[in-house]
């Protein structure tokens, strides 16, 4: 198999890599680019631990080919914080103890951000259905849902204040 040369944007930076035609974007991120924040929990799109956004759209990176990323814009959990400043979701996940083992956390954060980017006033039910593709086995989801709702409330407030 001949490698495919890809130029893409990841967390705002231009990145080039060579990948195999059957290699997933998740494999590229983790094994070629050292971005191990996205996790492989299943490899079949059932757990959401590998969530990233592709041109702003929430996807499972295990179900995207690395070759498809040519010219696209990818965002991963590594790009969520602004230097030392955490994204409000990251801060609220910590404050609410919304993680136990933490392996699903990157996927939840990326997915929750995609929700709040579209809807800063979601209901509990909207949060739960939006995040249904992100499996967590530790928390029973209670604290995760509370963290997302609390983040939304804080972001609404700061937006109104501004």
């Amino acid at each position: 198999m001949a490698g495919i040369h890809v130029t893409t944007t990841i967390n705002g930076d231009t990145v080039e890599y060579v990948c195999q035609p059957d290699e997933t974007l998740l494999d590229v991120l983790r094994d070629r680019l050292g971005l191990t924040g996205a996790k492989e929990g299943c490899g079949t799109g059932d757990c959401g631990a590998c969530s990233v956004t592709l041109d702003g759209r929430l996807v499972c990176s295990c179900l995207v080919l690395g070759a498809e990323a040519e010219g696209r814009a990818i965002a991963t959990v590594e790009g969520l914080a602004d230097g030392e400043t955490l994204h409000p979701l990251q801060r609220k996940f910590l404050e609410h103890a919304a993680l136990q083992c933490g392996v699903c956390t990157p996927g939840f954060l990326v997915a929750a951000k995609a929700l709040l980017d579209r809807n800063l006033n979601p209901t509990e039910s909207e949060v739960r259905y939006w995040l249904a593709g992100n499996l967590c086995r530790c928390t029973g989801y209670d604290k995760i849902v509370r963290a997302v709702l609390d983040t939304a409330a804080e972001m609404r407030e700061s937006r109104n204040a501004a």
Binding site: G45, S51, L58, L63, A111, G133
Partner: peptide, 9 residues
Amino acid sequence: IGSTQIQGR
């Protein structure tokens, strides 16, 4: 179909 992530694709 599937999740938010799946529907994005």
